[in-house]
């Protein structure tokens, strides 16, 4: 992989402070010093910002919320890691959907009902409200028609978990600003020409969509370094958050 390196030179701490302020980070932030050190380290050693949180950080959160006997459809379920535990540990009724033959076979072996479908079209045939939850883990940015899929999810399920990498994370901003090249990071480990991530967005972008489209937001989780925090607009989460997950629904109001 051709990792994007920031040109290595000696940055002063005041330089970083100015930079962070330009990015919009407030000095009152209690994490300011820590972030400053982290950015400094990244700049001195290139932007190989590693994602330290476990890969399926969303799964335990989802497992805690979904109740036994409820139903879940996982769009882009991969090898069925989330669903197999929901089904066998929590007695949840599950349905997986994935576009990869290998993933589908692995789900079959694990006893997970799974459909081998193009994710953009997969939900079109499902009836309204046939699941309690729909899950879209780190898949939104790979869809051809992300908004149509989100709309389908909210139609077929009462609630939807949607997680994605935050393209406005400081490591990505730095990589693009300093190297002038497409960022390659722990969460987005691809070259511009082979990335499946065609519709990236930031936390702010997603929240803006929620607001303008009248979507109901029920809960939020943002990965900041090694912690999972509820989204807080005062905490620069659109800069510090590496990934985020939101629990959304179409709500009762707009539904007829």
């Amino acid at each position: 992989m051709d990792k994007t390196k920031v040109p290595q030179r000696d940055f002063g701490t005041s330089e970083i402070e100015i930079l962070l302020r330009k990015l919009g980070i407030e000095a009152v932030d209690s994490d300011f010093m820590a972030l400053q050190q982290e950015v400094l380290h990244a700049l001195r050693h290139g932007t190989d910002h590693e994602f330290t949180m476990q890969k399926h950080w969303e799964d335990p959160i989802i497992r805690d919320i979904v109740l036994p006997g409820q139903s879940v459809v996982d769009l882009g379920c991969g090898d069925g890691e989330l669903l197999v535990r929901l089904a066998f540990e929590r007695g949840v009724k599950v349905q997986g959907i994935d576009h990869s033959e290998d993933a589908v076979v692995r789900c079959m072996e694990r006893g997970i009902p799974v459909c081998h479908e193009d994710l953009d079209k997969a939900l079109l045939d499902f009836p309204d409200n046939c699941f309690d939850y729909a899950v879209l883990e780190k898949t939104l940015q790979t869809l051809q028609n992300p908004l149509e899929v989100l709309e389908s999810m909210m139609r077929v399920a009462r609630y939807c978990f949607v997680s994605f990498p935050n393209f406005a994370h400081w490591s990505i901003r730095m990589a693009l600003s300093y190297s002038g090249r497409m960022p390659i990071t722990g969460t987005l480990p691809y070259n511009w020409y082979d990335t499946p991530n065609i519709h990236l967005c930031s936390i702010t972008d997603f929240l803006k969509w929620i607001e303008t489209d009248g979507v109901q937001l029920h809960d939020s989780w943002v990965v900041v370094a090694d912690k999972i925090l509820p989204y807080d607009p005062k905490q620069n989460h659109n800069i510090k958050g590496e990934q985020a997950m939101f629990l959304i629904s179409r709500g009762q109001g707009k539904r007829s």
Partner: peptide, 19 residues
């Protein structure tokens, strides 16, 4: 796909694969 759709519309878990 008609099988899959009809099963889904009945809320019957279905496994489908297209090689």
């Amino acid at each position: 796909k008609q099988f899959v759709t009809a099963l889904m519309r009945n809320g019957i878990p279905v496994t489908s694969v297209m090689l």
